[in-house]
Computed example of a mutant assay.
Amino acid sequence: MPEPIEQTNEATRLPAELQKAHDGFLRYMALERERSEHTLRAYGSDIGNLYAYAIPRGATTLAGLDLTLLRAWLMALQESGLARATLARRSATIRSFLTWAVREELIATNPAIRLKSPKREQRLPHILQNNQIERIFKPVPEPQGTPEGKAPEPTREQLALADRDKLILELLYATAIRVGELVSLDINDVDLDRRTLRVIGKGNKERTVPFGQPAMNAVDNWLRRARPALRTDDSGHALLLGRRGKRLDARQARQVVSDALAALGDTAARGPHSLRHSAATHLLDRGADLRAVQEILGHSSLATTQLYTHVSVERLKESYQRAHPRA
């Protein structure tokens, strides 16, 4: 049984060589590979987890991170019950980190090349059915009040937040963009005449994504009526705003989607990626070209987009089994 992994103690000073390598790698990934802040935090966390395991075991230099130690670290992670996707990501991070260290001549060879990590589980995402999509976008019923009297009128701020939440759902499903891409949008990224968004995706790659009439109506309503009710001097050019007028953060947007999906009561789908998965699958179900969907999603590899064709095939099989007399 491998030894447990200690919790990282941020107050503990790292050995100088390890700290310098950690900072140098993240700087390289930020400046030369243009990785997002979210990705950089994940890299830093993965390297920090390895350091927390290695240092108490005497590995205080990069050379000390040998194959034996890396295998023991990965085994300890596996025994701790981490998901295979997390194990795969952490081992991939360390391979990239040590590959960079070899290129920078900080170590002679990369022991992580021989590190085998578990394959990611190919789980098919939860997809919303058409009737569930329709219910998400149904207007919220007006409050009926109490026996004591009529319900209080919603405030201007409450109305604005309701319009914003509707826009979040509309844009995520209409465009299949990621939640990080959504909250990064500025007003001038929206072209209402052409009904398109200018989106900056992973690797700082730009793409243009179309959207339909319902989303256009939601954007127009937000810009004309709702956004001015939340706007402050801190709003800048951000398209979506929080309650205090600053740019909406991804956590708030995720909560809006999770609440809307939970309110359906008949789906295991949760979070913004469920809307992205659903939009991609529905496009392919209705005959959209795979490469066009790849462009909309911002996938660098067509193989990633092909996952959604598998979803469509599985849905077809389920329908066949339910409906065909001789299935």
Results as ranks from 00 to 15, higher is better:
P2H: 15
E3R: 15
P4S: 11
Q7R: 15
N9Q: 14
T12E: 02
R13G: 00
L14M: 04
L18Y: 02
L18K: 00
L18H: 01
K20Y: 02
A21F: 04
A30P: 04
E32S: 04
D46F: 13
D46V: 14
N49Y: 08
Y53E: 00
G58M: 02
T60D: 10
L74W: 01
L77M: 13
R84E: 07
L87R: 01
R90E: 03
T93F: 03
T93S: 08
F97V: 06
E105C: 02
L106V: 06
N110D: 15
I113F: 12
K116H: 07
S117N: 08
R123W: 15
L124N: 12
P125S: 12
P125W: 15
I127K: 07
Q132R: 11
E134V: 01
R135L: 06
R135D: 09
I136T: 01
F137D: 00
V140K: 00
V140C: 00
E142T: 13
G145E: 06
A151R: 11
T155P: 09
T155A: 11
A160V: 07
A162T: 02
R164I: 04
D165F: 05
D165L: 05
L171H: 09
L172S: 11
Y173R: 02
V179W: 03
V183E: 01
D186E: 07
L192F: 08
L192D: 06
T196R: 04
L197Q: 06
G201Q: 09
K205D: 08
K205C: 10
T208Y: 07
T208E: 08
F211G: 05
W222L: 10
A229Q: 15
L230T: 12
R231Q: 15
H237T: 14
A238Q: 10
L240D: 01
L241M: 11
G242N: 14
G245E: 12
R247F: 05
A250T: 09
Q252K: 08
V257S: 13
D259Y: 04
A262I: 13
L264R: 13
G265M: 12
D266S: 13
G271S: 14
L275Q: 13
R276H: 09
S278F: 06
L283K: 07
L283M: 14
L297E: 06
L297A: 09
L297N: 08
H299C: 04
H299Y: 07
S300T: 08
T309H: 02
T309K: 01
H310Y: 10
V313N: 07
E314W: 11
E318I: 02
